[in-house]
């Protein structure tokens, strides 16, 4: 205040300034320490503070608390729900994976069965074909054997005839067919032997 007084007095030249100083001098002391105004301040403090407390504690604060609580509940609910959905999704995924694994296993089983069946069939067909071929080969061999024997007989007959013809030419006497065959047979035996 004294600093202020120095500055103002340095600057003061007008009557207005003097008036200010006069006013200051008249209200000596701090206004805070004047007990005359204490009851009024306390009275209005009680009124305003009491009214504010009544309003805040019964209306505003419960309303705010309600809004915050509701939001917290809602968020918790939403999180719970999200958790449920996640669990459901996981269940569905597990079921799907299970079904997939089952289907795979089944498909592999079917493939294996089919392969085995086909192998059997092929083996059967092969066996059948082998048997048939064997039969045909045997028949052909028998036929060849027959033809060989027939050919050999024909060769013997031809030899005997040739021998008869040769002997007839040589001695003008034809041996009997029997003798000729015998002679050829013994000659053939001799050749063979």
């Amino acid at each position: 205040m004294s600093v202020f007084a120095i500055v103002t007095s340095a600057a003061a030249a007008a009557a207005e300034e003097a008036q200010v100083h006069a006013a200051e001098a008249s209200s000596a002391g701090l206004p805070q320490l004047d007990p005359a105004w204490w009851p009024s301040q306390l009275f209005w403090l009680v009124i305003t503070f009491g009214a504010l407390y009544a309003f805040l504690s019964t209306k505003a604060l419960p309303a705010i608390a309600g809004a915050i609580e509701e939001r917290r509940d809602r968020i918790a609910d939403d999180l719970d729900q999200a958790g449920d959905f996640k669990r459901q999704a996981e269940d569905a995924e597990n079921t799907y994976n299970q079904a997939l694994a089952d289907a795979k296993a089944k498909a592999q089983g079917i493939a294996a069965d089919t392969r085995a069946e086909m192998d059997d069939e092929i083996a059967k067909l092969q066996a059948e074909t082998d048997a048939q071929l064997g039969k045909q080969v045997a028949a052909a061999e028998a036929h060849i054997g027959e033809m060989k024997t027939a050919a050999a007989t024909k060769v013997g007959e031809a030899a005997a005839e040739t021998a008869r013809a040769v002997v007839e030419t040589l001695i003008d006497e034809a041996p009997t067919e029997e003798a000729a065959s015998r002679a050829v047979a013994s000659a053939a035996a001799g050749l063979k032997g």
């Binding site: 205040m1 202020f4 200010v20 006013a23 200051e24 209200s27 206004p31 004047d34 301040q41």
Partner: peptide, 10 residues
Amino acid sequence: AAGPMEQFEI
């Protein structure tokens, strides 16, 4: 200019 205490007057 008012004095610095004038503002506290009731």
